[in-house]
C-alpha cells in the first residue's frame, strides 16, 4: 500500500512493467559475461552457510538447547533462520551496493538507460527486482539445506521463503538508496562495517533478551533484527501476530529506500 502510494507520487504515470523487465533482463544478460560474476555470486552464498556450520553446528554442540517462545530448540535450529535472513540481506546488498555503484558511477550503464524511455523509478525497480532474484536464489538453496539438515519443517520452510524475499527487497532498496549517496569506494567500508555489526548483534547468535535494556531497544530499531524475528518465527513454526509488525517494518523500509533511490538517481544523473 505504502509502496504504491509513494510510487504513484514519484511517477504520476506509474512504472511500465516492460521497462522494469528490460532492466532486469540486462542483469540476466550480464550473467553470461563470464565466470567472474558467478564467483561473486557463489562466494556471497557460502558465507552464511559456513557460519551456520561452524557456529550453529560446531559451537551448538557446546551450547546445547535454547528455549525460544516456550519451546526447546537446538542451537543450530536457532542460528539457522538467522543465517537465512543474513543470506537474504547479503545477496540483495551485494547487488545493490557494489554492483549498483559500479554500474552507476564507472560503467555509466544507468546514463545509457536513462537516455531511453526508462525512468529512474523503473531503473530502481528493475535493479531491485534483480537483487531480489539473486537474494531469493540464495535463500531457496539455504532453505533446502536447512530442511535437509532437519533444521526446519518443509512446510514452514515454504512459508519462510516469501519472508526472505521481503527481507531481500527491504535491504536491497536501502542498499540502493545508500549507494546513490556514495562518493567512492572508500565509503563502502562504512556499509561493510555496518552490515557486520548488524550481523553480530541482531539476535543472530544469542537472544536479544539477554542484552541490557538499552541495547535491546537499540537492536530493536535496526532492520536485521526484524528480518531475523520474522524469518525465525516462520522457520520454527511460531506464527503469531507480532510477525506482521516485523513485516510492516520491512515493507516501510523497502518503500522508503526505493523512493529515495529513485529520487537520488534523478538528481544525480538527470542534470
Amino acid at each position: 500500500m505504502m509502496t504504491t502510494m509513494i510510487a504513484a507520487r514519484l511517477a504520476p504515470q506509474g512504472a511500465a512493467p516492460g521497462r522494469v523487465g528490460a532492466v532486469i533482463g540486462r542483469n540476466l544478460g550480464a550473467l553470461r559475461s563470464g565466470p567472474s560474476y558467478w564467483l561473486v555470486l557463489l562466494s556471497g552464498f557460502f558465507e552464511p552457510l559456513l557460519y551456520l556450520l561452524s557456529i550453529g553446528v560446531g559451537v551448538g554442540a557446546l551450547v546445547g538447547e535454547l528455549t525460544v517462545a516456550g519451546r526447546a530448540l537446538s542451537y543450530a535450529a536457532y542460528v539457522a533462520p538467522a543465517m537465512l535472513a543474513v543470506s537474504a540481506m547479503t545477496g540483495a546488498l551485494a547487488e545493490t551496493t557494489f554492483n549498483f555503484f559500479h554500474k552507476m558511477k564507472y560503467q555509466k550503464v544507468f546514463d545509457a538507460m536513462l537516455a531511453t524511455p526508462v525512468r529512474p523509478l523503473e531503473l530502481a525497480l528493475g535493479e531491485l527486482g534483480w537483487a531480489m532474484i539473486r537474494g531469493s536464489l540464495y535463500t531457496a538453496v539455504f532453505l533446502l539445506i536447512m530442511v535437509g539438515l532437519g533444521l526446519a519443517e518443509p512446510l514452514w520452510a515454504l512459508a519462510a521463503f516469501p519472508a526472505t524475499v521481503l527481507v531481500g527487497v527491504a535491504f536491497g532498496a536501502c542498499g540502493m538508496a545508500v549507494s546513490t549517496l556514495m562518493r567512492g569506494w572508500q565509503d563502502f567500508d562504512l556499509i561493510t562495517t555496518g552490515q557486520f555489526a548488524l550481523f553480530l548483534f541482531s539476535g543472530t547468535f544469542s537472544p536479544v533478551g539477554d542484552y541490557p535494556a538499552a541495547v535491546q531497544v537499540l537492536v530493536q530499531v535496526t532492520p536485521l533484527y526484524h528480518a531475523i524475528e520474522l524469518v525465525r518465527g516462520l522457520c520454527i513454526g511460531d506464527a503469531h501476530l507480532g510477525l506482521l509488525g516485523h513485516a510492516a517494518y520491512l515493507c516501510a523500509m523497502a518503500a522508503a529506500g526505493l523512493w529515495f533511490a529513485a529520487r537520488r538517481l534523478q538528481r544525480r544523473l538527470c542534470v
Binding site: A22, G29, Y37, T116
Partner: peptide, 21 residues
C-alpha cells in the same frame, strides 16, 4: 561512450532495444 562492457557487441544493441519495448 557508455557501452555495456558486461554484454557482447550484439547484446549491447538487443538489450538497448528492450528498453524501448
Amino acid at each position: 561512450d557508455n557501452l555495456d562492457f558486461d554484454l557482447s557487441v550484439r547484446e549491447n544493441l538487443t538489450t538497448y532495444a528492450r528498453y524501448f519495448g
